[in-house]
Design a protein around this nucleic acid. Structure first.
Length: 492
RNA sequence: GGCGACGUGGCCAAGCGGUAAGGCAGGGGCCUGCAAAGCCCUCACCCCCAGUUCGAAUCUGGGCGUCGCCUCCA
């Protein structure tokens, strides 16, 4: 059973998807007015790992991430640069997608753009007005927070407390048009020169919050399973999404709210004023994406994560420990000799099994990547110790192969590909997982050992490593097993 | 002022009532032509105080400290 910390209940709860075996997931994407920064990357990588894990655990995940391509900041940027807002948005949308791919983040299944979903947003606004949850004022439309009794339930705030404690709610004249200072715009009247769409309230554009409400509803339906984003979006963005969506449909919006912690640089908040604002693309100039991921894996996704060059260096060293072990195992497989074995195969296979189980236990517990990574390292130590200074026998190859396959598989769940050619355990992992599950994996059965051995030989043949392939065949022959190569593959 | 999070070895970090994972760095040894990698050993009374309990890093209360959100923000 997977447990997830739900922001709304502020507790870890068992995860049950709405539809058995399927998960609908929505993660707020960026507003494309600049290249994304390393903090954005933390959030997106966190959810990439969550998505990969759910997929690996057997869920069919539908992952939706929007691009907010119409917004005040984009308009401002365009004005500064003397060009169109659409042009600015298009440039940074492309850059965003390129940056995500460079960081090893899988593409979402659906990546809606706000500007292409305007009719759905207008529909939603109309619904809110009809339901008495929103009102139009001179071309603007505001959501009436007092009309939604549960306003504040996600972020744990109460309307009255917010108003009494709020600093400067009534400073601008604009606020007077609202019935309540906390009411927020769901539709904004266009000023001259701004991008706009026709609507029942005149030319204008959608408010930020309504975009996500409309797009998530359209592509996932309500309610859906998981809504995610950075912790700084809890209020007001997500709170407002809940209010709009639930006021309109009269149902629950999202069952689980997952928020990733903020990234800090050298223990300080990242901000332009502090001069410590790091773009993802700049970091990736000098850092491999696996190393960045490794750094992020070492901290739980909900905790603040401190980013620094020192930590990057440490992450690189840590990763190389795993890589070295994989390389070592590859070498051992290729150089197994026809001699009596000094290796305790059963122990190694049991450790492989334990590692896989404990990895799952850690990840099932609210995606505890740091704990899971600890399991991986413990496994690496087990392997290294088992194999240290030994000349291995042909008969050890299945156990070695399995250990390596699982190591690669588990790191693959994190989105770190250790190597791709020899072991077919690189992502998509669900295929591998399925195969293992069907075989009652992991176990130490002869059948599996033989299968692993056959796979090994096939790989060797593919690499035209005839010496190794023949060694495997001879080794099996010595055990009384004869391999026959058929058009469908090897058979015993 | 309101809401919330956190404080574990030199650094990072898991831990969710039963006697401190893991990584990085450091020290000693082994292996090695040298090195790298690796192996073995070594390095913590978990911010302070009080309480609950047979037993607490883990629960409760009170301190001290750090940070985040409350405004656009991943």
């Amino acid at each position: 059973m997977i447990t997830i910390y739900n922001t709304q209940t502020r507790s870890k709860v068992d995860f049950e998807s709405i539809e058995r075996g399927k998960v609908g997931m929505y993660v707020c994407g960026p507003t494309v007015y600049n290249y994304i920064h390393i903090g954005n990357a933390r959030t997106f990588i966190s959810f990439d790992i969550i998505r990969r894990y759910l997929t690996w655990r057997g869920f069919k995940v539908t992952f939706v991430q929007n691009v907010t391509d119409v917004d005040d900041k984009i308009i401002k940027k365009a004005a500064e640069e003397g060009r169109g807002a659409a042009e600015v948005a298009a440039e940074y949308t492309d850059a965003f997608i390129a940056d995500m791919r460079a960081a090893g983040v899988l593409d979402p299944d659906i990546r809606p753009k706000a500007t292409e979903e305007i009719p759905e947003m207008i529909d939603l606004v109309m619904q809110l007005i009809e339901g008495g949850h929103a009102y139009a004022v001179e071309g603007d439309v505001y959501f009436a927070v007092r009309s939604f009794a549960e306003y504040g339930k996600l972020s744990g705030r109460k309307i009255d407390e917010m108003e009494s404690g709020h600093r400067d709610l009534r400073t601008s004249g604009l606020e007077d048009r609202k019935r309540d200072p906390l009411d927020f715009a769901v539709w904004k009247a266009a000023k001259p020169g701004e991008p706009s769409w026709e609507s029942p309230w005149g030319a204008g554009r959608p408010g930020w919050h309504i975009e996500c409400s409309a797009m998530s509803r359209k592509y996932l339906g309500l309610p859906f399973d998981i809504h995610g984003g950075g912790a700084d979006l809890v209020f007001p963005h997500h709170e407002n999404e809940v209010a709009q969506s639930e006021a309109a449909c009269g149902c629950t919006f999202a069952n689980y709210w997952i928020h990733s912690g903020m990234l800090q640089i050298n223990s300080e908040k990242m901000s332009k004023s502090l001069g410590n604002f790091l773009l993802l693309r700049d970091v990736l100039e000098t850092t491999r994406p696996e190393v960045l991921r490794m750094l992020m894996l070492q901290t739980h996704y909900r905790s603040p994560l401190d980013f620094s060059d020192e930590r990057l260096t440490e992450a690189e060293a840590a990763l190389s420990r795993i890589v070295n072990t994989v390389k070592n195992l590859e070498w051992l497989e290729a150089n197994a000799a026809d001699i009596p074995s000094p290796l305790d195969i059963r122990a190694l296979m049991a450790q492989t099994q334990t590692a896989r189980n404990e990895f799952i236990a850690a990840m099932d517990d609210d995606f505890n990547t740091a704990g899971a990574l600890g399991v991986v390292f413990a496994f690496v130590s087990d392997i290294n110790a088992a194999v240290a200074d030994k000349t291995l026998s042909i008969s050890d190859v299945p156990a070695i192969y399995q250990a390596r396959a699982v190591l690669v598989e588990l790191m693959g769940v994190f989105g770190i590909a250790l190597e791709g050619e020899q072991v077919e355990a690189q992502y998509p992992c669900e295929v591998v997982a399925l195969a293992h599950d069907l075989a009652g994996y992991p176990g130490a059965s002869e059948t599996q050992a033989v299968e692993a051995l056959l796979a090994c030989r096939e790989q060797a043949r593919k690499n035209k490593d005839w010496a190794l392939a023949d060694k495997v065949r001879d080794g099996l022959a010595a055990l009384g097993l004869t391999i026959e190569d058929t058009p469908q593959g090897p058979r015993i």
